[in-house]
Design a protein around this nucleic acid. Structure first.
Lengths: 133, 133
DNA sequence: GCTTGACCTTCCCATGGTGGGAAGCTCCAT
DNA sequence: ATGGAGCTTCCCACCATGGGAAGGTCAAGC
């Protein structure tokens, strides 16, 4: 299986597959006589593992840890759970951050009549003429 | 006012102030005889405007637009509102993205007993042995 | 005056995750 | 044999931010 097919099958772009290999997230892929990277079922499973982890927002560094735990048959699930909980806390922080941005901005937007007149509570708030915010 | 004081007063790091100037987000600052950047009240107001906009998650490109509108006394508030609404929609998308990550991960975490045993629904799900997810 | 330390200048490099594209090689079907 | 699709490596870009080196400047204290 060439890299293009592995990319299609895994949902990870060929560019990224090469990148993951280069940073040691994936082992060096086998090569054909011509130097083409070759991928098998096992590689595909790793790629899918990575893609699913990315889908959950894990960083490549966290995924490195997850992959290690995955490959260690004797890992205590405690360690996996700890890693996941840590990321969950990170997601929570992000969520709150964005939520408060959204709330503040939504308020400003609702205050702005949005017509042809120049006066605008959004700009007023950003410039520090804090009347209602 | 030197850049360090402007940084303290605005909450924008000196590094970033220089950067914003270099990309044309801020006009070239005046210089002292020794070449030190000098900042006045007007510059400070711009810096605060930028910081508040960043706090709401606007990109530097969006802020460029906001600054232009701010400086245009005749702008229709309609344009400001449109820009803000666009960013609001972006925040909404981000929010949903993170929320669904959080939800999925929280489910997995709740399924993992997290003890010394090696079996772990989190890793199972990431590796594609989709039982409950 | 001279030293010292805090501040400023410019310049380059790094992060994280991804993409674009060039130059050159390989494979396969026609 | 030719053409096009796919592969290789290599460099550059994004966004926003920070780190740090090498060198100039300023003000306070001796």
């Amino acid at each position: 299986m060439n890299i293009g097919d592995a990319a299609k099958a895994s949902g990870v772009s060929a560019k990224m597959i090469r990148h993951y290999e280069s940073i040691g997230l994936l082992p060096q892929a086998g090569r054909s006589d011509a130097g083409y990277r070759q991928y098998g079922d096992k590689d595909l499973r790793s790629l899918l593992f990575i893609r699913r982890s990315r889908d959950l927002g894990f960083s490549l560094d966290e995924i490195r840890g997850l992959l290690e735990l995955w490959q260690d048959r004797a890992r205590p699930s405690r360690e996996v759970k700890a890693l996941a909980q840590q990321h969950l806390a990170f997601l929570d922080r992000k969520l709150e951050e964005i939520q408060s941005m959204k709330q503040a901005l939504a308020h400003l937007v609702s205050c702005c009549h949005g017509d042809e007149r120049p006066d605008c509570p959004i700009l007023e708030s950003l410039s520090g003429e804090s009347s209602s915010v």
